[in-house]
Simulated assay, not measured.
Amino acid sequence: MRNLFFLFFGLLSLAVSAQNNAGTIVYKQTVFMRREAQAMAPAGVDQNMTRNIPESMTTEFELNFTANESFYKELASRTDESAGEGGGMRFMMRRFNPPIYKDLANNRQVEENDLFGKQFLIDDVIPTRAWKIAGQQKKVLDYPCISATFTDSIMGRARVVTAWFAPTLPVAIGPQGYGGLPGMILEVEFDGGRSVVTAAEVKLQKPAEGAIKIPEKGKKVTRAEYQKIQAEKMKEMRESGMMQGRQGGGPGMIIIRN
């Protein structure tokens, strides 16, 4: 049945016009910051400390793509920090959405990542994920979409990711580096809605010259090397008492003691 499903959507993708293979998509990411902060705060932290954190924050991103390449980047910079007054703590909301380049033809992904002020350039194969086609349907910007889910673990925290992909846009990519489904991902939801990335505009035309580029800043590492460095740094910060927190879907929350 699974093979028949992918065969059906593979044939559907071939049936759509070639112009759907290139374009620009603007995504809006909404993070419900107070809900995220409460869920990610370490045990024992007074939940009332989050009362001064804004309810939500919205950031725009742009995905330029062709049949073989894509580049995802943030469009507008926003304030990352929200401070509370209680308990001598400061809440810092940090985004983990680096610019990401994908070369679908050669199974290559390159992304810039900042880890506590040091730049890294992760150059590796495109990650694969164990998507499960849930089969639910809805429209995103009038594009019929189908849901798919997977569960992963980031910094020791389980996270449920739900994506909505459009088979009529036959490119296996999406926001935040997600992809691998039989159609463009137009919406991604983390942990039941604590963070949502959804397409706000789709333009099906060849991207402007230079809109798709390969990131170049930072020390080049593989994904495994970066994850090892990240884990070591987080452990070091926690043991020193300087930081508590975990990374989640969208931004992470870091609690810094004054």
Results as ranks from 00 to 15, higher is better:
residue 162 T to N: 07
residue 156 G to I: 07
residue 114 D to V: 13
residue 155 M to Q: 13
residue 97 N to S: 15
residue 125 V to T: 14
residue 145 C to N: 06
residue 182 P to W: 04
residue 102 K to A: 08
residue 131 W to Y: 06
residue 165 F to G: 01
residue 107 N to P: 00
residue 165 F to P: 00
residue 134 A to Q: 12
residue 178 Y to K: 07
residue 136 Q to A: 15
residue 184 M to R: 04
residue 136 Q to S: 13
residue 177 G to P: 06
residue 126 I to C: 04
residue 130 A to V: 10
residue 104 L to E: 09
residue 121 L to E: 07
residue 153 S to M: 12
residue 183 G to P: 01
residue 185 I to K: 02
residue 164 W to N: 02
residue 100 I to H: 05
residue 165 F to W: 01
residue 106 N to Q: 09
residue 153 S to Y: 05
residue 136 Q to C: 08
residue 152 D to H: 12
residue 99 P to I: 06
residue 112 E to Y: 13
residue 158 A to L: 13
residue 111 E to W: 13
residue 97 N to A: 14
residue 154 I to E: 12
residue 110 V to K: 10
residue 166 A to E: 03
residue 161 V to D: 03
residue 179 G to V: 00
residue 96 F to H: 14
residue 182 P to Y: 04
residue 180 G to F: 03
residue 130 A to H: 12
residue 111 E to K: 15
residue 179 G to F: 01
residue 109 Q to V: 04
residue 129 R to T: 11
residue 186 L to F: 04
residue 148 A to R: 05
residue 169 L to N: 02
residue 159 R to L: 13
residue 165 F to C: 02
residue 149 T to N: 14
residue 145 C to E: 08
residue 142 D to I: 10
residue 127 P to R: 12
residue 175 P to W: 00
residue 127 P to Y: 12
residue 145 C to T: 15
residue 134 A to I: 13
residue 99 P to V: 05
residue 108 R to L: 11
residue 152 D to W: 12
residue 110 V to G: 08
residue 112 E to H: 14
residue 145 C to P: 04
residue 169 L to A: 01
residue 111 E to C: 06
